[in-house]
Design a protein around this nucleic acid. Structure first.
Lengths: 160, 160
DNA sequence: TGGCAATTACAGCACCTACTGAAATTGGTG
DNA sequence: CACCAATTTCAGTAGGTGCTGTAATTGCCA
């Protein structure tokens, strides 16, 4: 009597991927299907799945997976792989997907810095008002300056 | 011939607040009006404005400002102030509004940590699959552990 | 208690976006 | 070149959300 290897139910995995989807929906404003696909690719077996396979697993149409997978691959969260002798493209979650997800959440800080700069320029003669704008500028500048070396350290620790 | 103090055009300020709104719309998924109101409160004169005043400035209805200002005050980005002898409530941007905005962008990390924990529990017998989930768990744990002391330092530097 | 200014609740409208199904396209194979 | 599986495009639809106008409510004052 060997140890039983319990294979998780398909529905359990689906439900888990749905949790991932819900999280990124609320936190990052992702469309539901995007989070479902990514969540599925985290726990599926085998690791590499065809678009059709993903579609069936997360109960979405193949058509919608075309655009979803394009977004995921072009942002490098998912890699498309092909095999000689097969027409099908397979997809797998990228090893550095999560570092990229985290970085995306910080992208655009400098855009706001530029907006606040323009705001201060609008109010050259009014110290109190421009101070309100400057407070925002300084807070976001602090954040972007803190975050930059943080990710550099991540890279250093994870470069192979 | 004293120095002229140029008062910015109302439309200039409106346009600037609109830029703020656009930014938070795209980056944080805020409704347009929310960003408009916050942007307006950054550059308005006087600093404290009634709901009706804000509504007129950003060309929105008073009704919609009721809910918008409730969201902004309950998340402490905006403070409601009242004056003796006046019925009107006035609103001003909070001094620590930006620290709060930034913190909000990190809120919910632990929620995802819990989801990944459950995912690993779903796959006790499959090292490769659970490793995929663990990669996410470790990345987000790293982030939350980096971010915590970062904000503590901010608090220490800005506490009065 | 009645009156009035200010605020709020709520139903409806307009808009937008995710998603699907069907048709068109691609590209490898015999 | 013809065939066929796989993928993509695109128009249409369903669902959801922000916002407004109106009507109700609050609460201060005489």
């Amino acid at each position: 009597m060997g140890t039983e290897r319990r294979e998780p139910e398909l529905d359990e995995l689906r439900a888990w991927a749905e949790q991932v989807a819900t999280y990124f929906m609320r936190l990052s404003g992702w469309p539901p299907i995007t989070g479902r696909a990514l969540g599925w690719l985290m726990v599926c077996e085998p690791r590499e799945q065809s678009a059709a396979g993903i579609a069936e697993a997360i109960r979405a149409s193949r058509a919608s997976l075309t655009s979803t997978l394009r977004v995921l691959t072009s942002s490098n969260l998912v890699q498309a792989v092909t095999r000689p002798g097969e027409r099908t493209t397979y997809y797998r979650i990228a090893d550095d997907a999560w570092a990229r997800v985290m970085r995306q959440r910080f992208a655009g800080l400098s855009e706001f810095l530029e907006i606040t700069r323009q705001g201060m320029a609008l109010l050259p003669d009014d110290p109190e008002r421009s101070a309100r704008v400057r407070a925002a500028n300084e807070a976001f500048r602090w954040l972007s300056e803190e975050v930059e070396p943080m990710f550099e350290q991540w890279d250093a620790e994870h470069r192979r």
